[in-house]
Design a protein around this nucleic acid. Structure first.
Lengths: 156, 156
DNA sequence: GTTCCTGCAAAAGATTTGCAGTGAC
DNA sequence: GTCACTGCAAATCTTTTGCAGGAAC
């Protein structure tokens, strides 16, 4: 489903996150560190359940309550973004400088979520921001369709 | 919050929805009709709670279970779109031909949801669809920022 | 030693489901 | 009269909160 262990996809983000947490007066607790480390290894947004499973697999289980609490802190600091892909559960991913900006493609059939980027789309959003006088607005684009493998299956 | 009563913003949609339901073998029950009528009057997506309140105000209260069931049927028929704006609750709105295609601006402060349209964005999405080989993909764009009145307040 | 962090269990919301009575055809 | 529709209540699922013990500083 995603990076197995140890390979930080966003090393700069991980460091920034730890510094920001320290500066904000948070202590370096085990649960908090584990969540930050895990998020730094993910190429795309994870659901809380997935996050907990991955943490448990590496013998660093964290309680549900702590996961939600840590994610909330990180979101408030602008380090994590909550992504709603339309299936009733929230997903979370690292965001901000040091992390590639991307949007999401959601498969209507298997529910898989994949990241994608598009220059033209970003330009259109930038122009739109000017028109609507939005400063620093976050944007999130979700496109729903059948993913490659599911489109294949339904074609049979 | 939205249209008060009786003024169908999407008359063509209402008729299409009723026909589609009939063709799909559904009977013209009271709850089903009430929900379709209400949705046809809304310029933007409603939460289930709002929908129930509006129905109750016009003395055509519908139970929560029925509202969810009707919305699910309509969604499956492609007549209604579920919109997740990132606050833990789903919103629903009429969609398809006869209804203006739009996206959503969500205020981070007061949680208000407003519709917006943008030609450049649509063109960018159309080009993107070609690139990703998506056929008939639905897209949904949510932009979060402070709305005009909230931006005003926080500036004081 | 103090204050924050964490896990557990319970609570709170949103949504779904089971079932029995009511209404459409 | 039959079968679908609806409402109620209970169940389920995600997320949040209260609290007591444990860890960081």
């Amino acid at each position: 489903m995603s990076a197995r262990a140890g390979i930080a996809v966003h090393p700069a983000w991980a460091e920034r996150a730890r510094n920001a947490l320290t500066e904000a007066g948070y202590r370096r607790g085990g649960a908090r560190s584990a969540v930050v480390t895990l998020l730094a290894e993910q190429p795309c947004a994870l659901a809380v359940a997935e996050l907990m499973e991955l943490l448990a697999e590496r013998d660093r289980a964290v309680s549900r309550a702590s996961v939600y609490r840590v994610l909330e802190e990180l979101e408030r600091l602008g380090l994590v973004q909550r992504v709603e892909v339309g299936l009733g559960i929230a997903r979370y991913e690292a965001t901000g400088s040091g992390v590639g900006h991307h949007h999401h493609l959601v498969c209507e059939r298997c529910k898989r979520v994949e990241p994608f980027t598009d220059e033209g789309l970003e330009r259109a959003i930038a122009r739109l921001s000017g028109r609507l006088a939005l400063q620093a607005a976050e944007h999130e684009i979700v496109i729903r369709r059948a993913c490659a493998s599911c489109a294949e299956i339904s074609r049979r």
